[in-house]
Design a protein around this nucleic acid. Structure first.
Length: 404
DNA sequence: AATCCACAGGAAGTGCTGGGCG
DNA sequence: CGCCCAGCACTTCCTGTGGATT
């Protein structure tokens, strides 16, 4: 094997013509100028928000649909246009975007809103939450203005912190003298509405927009549009696009997943020094994306969650097809704890951890009733077990157990 | 039809961490 | 510095329940 010097590698990279024209087009936060197959949703949101241009307060909006159905993109797109138009008309309107998945506490959501509307530098922790709320009100009330707050992935916030902040936010207009606030709530969990206070729900869903998943043809159109912008001409095979669209269509019509596949496939093409993106690269990309995702997720899990996952993996390898229940997991988990010298957590906690692992998509754990033999969760690993094992083998805390 | 298993999952609280404030 | 605050992992105590078996 010929060994290349670092300089050689750099040189070859620089000399080679990239297959990408503009890779940014394939990143998550890119909002294109056209959103194919979302015209209706855009129109509806635009109608609702248009009130703002006449100085009114638009109704609160609730948008729901599964991941990658364009909710965030539509919201960002319309808001951007609205802000532009507002500026031309000399109106004072702004918006704050908060993704609750990464700020899943009341406090952090408020801090983020403050940050977005120009009140920077608040600490991530340490202050009383109502103080931040007051700060926010003062900031909004400085002048006659409309602030539209977008709460993306709202279900995460409600699940982990309840709807206190939501309640406060829906009532915020009562406390404002000059400014006004409209809310846009976005969620992909349809059942989550049940957990909401009815007052919050009715206030938040004055208007609602439903996003249905894309089908394969629509995904194809989206990919086609991005391809033209992102890749050099003639690089991407049409059949590769069809395949990526088909794969993503199976996974609840997730456009983000489709675009990920395309981007990673493009990176693979570059790495392998080729100049054509084919179906093969899409398949390789699929593997890579899945493996990476699993490995990163498992590696960054708290240790107790790892131990319980280890127990589940053990069970699904040994007890050939036997039912894996919460009680089973508990036994194996406690054995593992003794062998590795960890203090086991209680059943109640195990139950929460199993739910966590399910939320992460590593396992499925539907509640089933075995009649006389009780009610439990039926657990199954939903990702390639080898990817999980790979992480544990590398981790010296567990490797003792895995080596023979 | 009644029973009862093996848990599910809500509520409230503890102990610890990491930060701010006067 | 001591005090306060929120978050997190976890515990304790608890009530609820689908359906095979009695």
């Amino acid at each position: 094997m010929i060994s290349l010097s670092v300089d050689d590698i750099f040189d070859s990279l620089l000399m080679k013509k990239s297959v990408f024209k503009n890779k940014r087009v394939l990143s998550h936060d890119y909002v294109p100028n056209e959103l194919p197959h979302r015209e209706k949703e855009i129109q509806k949101l635009a109608y609702i928000l248009a009130t703002a241009l006449k100085g009114g307060k638009p109704s609160n909006v609730f948008m729901y649909g599964k991941t990658g159905t364009g909710k965030t993109a539509v919201a960002r797109y319309v808001l951007k246009k609205l802000a532009e138009r507002g500026e031309k008309l000399g109106l004072s309107l702004s918006y704050a975007y908060v993704n609750c998945r990464y700020r899943k506490t009341n406090y952090r959501v408020l801090v983020k809103i403050c940050d977005e509307i120009g009140c920077r530098g608040l600490p991530e922790t340490g202050l009383p939450a109502d103080m931040i709320f007051d700060k926010m009100i003062k900031q909004i009330d400085r002048k006659d203005q409309l602030v539209i707050i977008i709460l993306d992935e709202l279900d995460w916030l409600v699940k982990s912190s309840g709807d206190d902040v939501l309640y406060q936010l829906t009532r915020i207009n009562n406390e404002l003298e000059r400014g006004q606030v409209s809310l846009i709530g976005i969620t992909n969990d349809l059942k989550f509405k049940d957990n909401l206070d009815s007052r919050v729900l009715s206030s938040l869903s004055e208007e609602s927009i439903i996003f249905s998943p894309y089908n394969a043809q629509q995904l194809y159109d989206i990919l086609k549009q991005r391809t033209v912008m992102a890749f050099e001409d003639g690089v991407v095979d049409d059949s590769a696009l069809r395949l990526a669209a088909a794969i993503a269509a199976q996974e609840h019509g997730d456009a983000r997943r489709a675009i990920d596949l395309l981007r990673v496939a493009g990176e693979i093409v570059e790495r392998q020094g080729e100049n054509k993106l084919t179906e093969r690269h899409i398949l390789e990309a699929k593997d890579e994306v899945e493996k990476d995702l699993v490995e990163v997720t498992v590696r960054d899990l708290p240790v107790q969650e790892q131990l319980i996952l280890l127990a589940i993996v053990n069970l699904s390898l040994s007890s050939n097809g036997d039912k894996i229940t919460t009680g089973n997991v508990k036994k194996v988990y406690e054995d593992i704890c003794i062998k590795l010298g960890y203090k086991p957590v209680t059943l109640r906690r195990i139950n929460d951890i199993i739910s966590d692992l399910e939320m992460l998509g590593i396992i499925s754990a539907p509640v089933v009733s075995l009649g006389r033999y009780g009610r439990t969760k039926l657990i199954r690993v939903e990702v390639p077990i080898n990817s999980i094992l790979k992480v544990f083998e590398k981790d010296e805390r567990f490797s003792v157990l895995l080596k023979k």
